[in-house]
Amino acid sequence: MPPNKPDTDATGVAAETVRRVPTLVVAYDDPQARPGDRSLAVEMPVNLVYGSVPYAVMMTTPADLEDFAYGFSLTEGIIESADEIRGVSVEDGDGGLRVLVDLVPGRLREHLARKRAISGRTGCGVCGIDDLSALPKAAPRTGVDRSVTIGAVQRALAALGDAQILNRETRAVHAAAWADHAGSLVAVREDVGRHNGLDKLIGALIRRGTDPADGFVVITSRCSFEMVEKAASFGAAVLVAISAPTSLAIDRAALHGMTLCAIARSDTLTVFGGRERLILDPAP
């Protein structure tokens, strides 16, 4: 192997790990959007299957899946050493990939006999889901659809830092916020888990009877497909993320007819879909 070349795993079905997508880059002080493109990490559901029995669906970048199968099996307590796996193969599944892990007979019997209860995972999985067909998908949005100005988005982003009380103290949590159409923050929730923070925000909004047409969601974390699905399940039409989205996040936002803005900074934001809902007025 040539010097400095990382070890790679070519096992299984070939899948892209980077997708180039068209974008619009919007400066808050300029109403003219600049067309561009950006490379995004591919996010894909991967179903881990042991002895023909589905175990869990994890959201992963579809590379090094043999390594992933070994590491996951060890950290989940399914195996105690690498030699308890006889082989790993990868096949196309319904909307994702299946990783078939062939355990030695004794270990497979122990695994199938063990009662499993998923309360949460340290990796980016879909808790409680063991088959690709059970991936969550929000119901179609209903109700009034309103536009959002980039000035309002800029004001919400500018206010979010001071609103993150726990993060100012710890620098270790994510935030999810609801902003009205003027860009004023109505509710902010924080949590060590990005999904938890958004769930908390949505819980607060539905408890107070907030109309999803009255504002937009802002998140400080990476924008993966689960974050889009959660926002869509509330009925939000616009999601703004400080970090970049994944490929599946863009696909799901398009499926739900949502406006997805990401890489939102103090001077610009990048529009990945739903441009028609944004009013490109310069911020006052």
Rank of each mutant, 00 (worst) to 15 (best):
V21K: 04
A175N: 05
H181F: 11
M227L: 10
V42R: 03
A176L: 01
V173C: 14
L205R: 02
I242R: 15
E229V: 03
V49D: 06
D145F: 08
V99D: 01
V188H: 05
V218W: 08
R114L: 11
K137V: 12
L239Q: 04
F225M: 11
A172G: 12
I85S: 06
V26L: 12
T170M: 03
G128Y: 09
R265H: 07
A187L: 04
T170E: 03
S221N: 02
F234R: 03
R98C: 11
T11P: 02
R252E: 13
R19V: 14
A56R: 07
A236P: 08
C223Q: 00
G77W: 04
G209S: 03
P54S: 08
D67R: 15
G235A: 04
G12I: 07
L278Q: 00
L239I: 13
R146C: 05
E190S: 01
V240Y: 11
A82R: 12
P31I: 06
L239S: 05
T17D: 09
S147F: 10
M1P: 06
L269G: 01
G183K: 06
R208Q: 15
S73W: 10
R121F: 13
A213R: 03
R208V: 15
Y55V: 05
A187G: 00
E66V: 08
R38S: 05
P22E: 14
N4D: 14
V218I: 15
F68K: 14
V228F: 01
A231Q: 01
A56I: 11
R121C: 09
E80S: 15
A134Y: 05
M44S: 05
V25T: 13
C124S: 07
V49G: 05
S247P: 09
V13C: 05
T268Q: 07
A249G: 07
R19N: 06
K115C: 10
V25C: 06
T17G: 07
A176Y: 00
H174N: 05
I279A: 06
G71T: 09
V46A: 04
A27N: 10
E110T: 09
M44G: 01
P31V: 08
V26I: 13
L100I: 05
D199H: 02
D162C: 03
T8M: 09
L24W: 10
S221W: 00
D7M: 10
M44F: 02
D267N: 03
K115V: 15
K230N: 09
E43D: 12
V25Q: 09
L40I: 14
T8Y: 08
L185C: 01
V153Q: 12
L74V: 07
G36S: 08
V144G: 04
C261A: 14
V240F: 09
